[in-house]
Amino acid sequence: MHQKQKQVQQQTRIPLSNRVISKPLYHLILGLTLCWGFGVNWWMVQNIHPTAFIDYSVLLFLGFYFGSFILGCSLFQGSSNALVSFIGFNLVVVPLGLVVNIATDGVATPLITYAMELTALVTVTMMCLSMLFPGFFKSIIGKLALVGLTLVAVELVYIFVLGGSNILIHAGMVVTFAGYIGYYWVHACEQEPTLDNAIDAAAYLYMSIINLFLRILEILKR
């Protein structure tokens, strides 16, 4: 009896964000956080003019994008407080939502819907594969980072030197972000099930899924 009381007292001293919760609740919070991010993006597409920031000032847009994104990442990565992590998550959602808004401007709704369906299909497939082969996805994270950085460098050369991009770069990015989804799902499943970890995992998955969607949409537009 005394041992149980001691365990309860120790648990109550742990901050709510770091208390261990059940796996189903952990995954529920992760899923709801992802839905919140996608919902915010949908609202932004519906209610904000795609080029509102860029028309006003390109430098202002770039400053806001990188400032909000970097601050958001530092908050959810560096904090063990679920509320702070959720604020950081939203600071990442908003600038990426602006990019989604610009990328979907003038694109036919059926094409956007098809891109969303393909993104969902790839996401679910990678999650299933990662549960079957967790060791493989954990072993490729370094290679994914290297490939991703290489593709970004090549794409920058194409944009600033050749004045455009290449569909093969977008295809390579699709494969890279699909791999990241698999890795982050393995990471999410192996983390201690806490409120803060659920939000952190959702943030990593959200960034990979949104970037996957943008690359798939770019391929379909071409």
Rank of each mutant, 00 (worst) to 15 (best):
T109Q: 12
T125E: 03
G88R: 03
S57D: 04
L83Q: 13
L129Q: 02
A52D: 12
T33N: 04
A115N: 00
N41P: 03
S57Y: 02
I21A: 00
P24N: 02
F66A: 02
F53R: 10
T104P: 07
V124L: 11
G63Y: 06
L98R: 05
D55G: 08
G135C: 12
N81S: 08
A82V: 06
S130E: 12
F38D: 03
L132P: 09
L34T: 11
F137K: 13
L132A: 14
I29Y: 07
L129A: 05
F133I: 11
P134C: 03
A52R: 07
L75K: 09
K138E: 12
V20A: 05
A82Y: 05
A108P: 08
T123R: 06
N18Q: 00
F86I: 09
P24H: 04
V100W: 10
I14S: 01
V92P: 07
G97K: 10
V92E: 06
C35M: 15
G67D: 07
H49S: 14
I70V: 09
G135A: 10
T33E: 02
N101G: 08
D55T: 06
L60I: 07
L59R: 15
G88L: 00
G39L: 04
M127V: 05
I48V: 06
W36I: 11
G39P: 02
F89H: 13
A120W: 04
L91Y: 04
V100F: 10
N18L: 00
L30K: 01
P15E: 01
K23D: 07
T113F: 14
W36G: 10
M44C: 04
V92I: 14
S130C: 10
M126F: 10
G72F: 08
F76T: 11
F38E: 03
A103Y: 09
V92N: 09
Y114I: 15
G39V: 02
S22I: 01
F61Y: 15
L59C: 06
G39H: 01
F76Y: 14
L129M: 11
F64R: 08
M44F: 09
L30A: 05
P95E: 01
A108T: 13
S68H: 04
A115C: 02
A115E: 05
V93T: 09
P134V: 14
G135L: 06
P95H: 05
G39D: 01
G78P: 00
K138Q: 14
A103N: 13
L98N: 02
F66V: 08
A103I: 11
L75E: 03
F64K: 10
T51F: 14
